[in-house]
C-alpha cells in the first residue's frame, strides 16, 4: 500500500514535470539562460527528461524572472567576491 502510494506520487511528480517541460523547452529555457535562447531543437528535446526531474527549481527561476544561470560557488570565487565588496 505504501509502495503503491510512493509510486503514484512519483508518477504524478514526473507527469507534472512533463507538462511543464513542453512550454519550458519552447520558451522558458531561453528566459532563464541566454545561451539557450536560440538553442537547437535537438537541445530542447534533450533537456526534457532532466526538466521532468528538476521542474520545481526551473519553474521557480522562470517565475522569479532570473535571466542568468547561478554564479558558481568555490573558495576562490567567494574570496574574490568578498574582496570586491570591501
Amino acid at each position: 500500500m505504501i509502495a503503491q502510494g510512493i509510486l503514484l506520487m512519483t508518477g504524478g511528480y514526473l507527469m507534472c514535470g512533463l507538462v511543464f517541460a513542453i512550454p519550458f523547452a519552447l520558451v522558458g529555457v531561453g528566459k532563464i539562460d541566454p545561451h539557450a535562447a536560440h538553442g537547437s531543437w535537438g537541445f530542447r528535446l534533450l533537456i526534457i527528461p532532466g526538466t521532468m526531474f528538476f521542474w520545481p527549481l526551473l519553474a521557480y527561476r522562470w517565475i522569479k524572472g532570473v535571466h542568468e544561470p547561478p554564479a558558481e560557488v568555490n573558495p576562490h570565487r567567494c574570496a574574490a567576491r568578498k574582496g570586491a565588496q570591501q
Binding site: 539562460d33 545561451h35 527528461p49 532532466g50 526531474f53 528538476f54 527561476r61 547561478p70 568555490n74
Partner: peptide, 18 residues
C-alpha cells in the same frame, strides 16, 4: 537515468558545476 538526463552543459551551467 537522472545522471544521463542531466548530462548536457545546460544542466552544468544551471545547477552550477559543484
Amino acid at each position: 537515468m537522472l545522471m544521463a538526463a542531466t548530462s548536457h552543459d545546460f544542466w552544468l551551467a544551471n545547477l552550477s558545476a559543484p
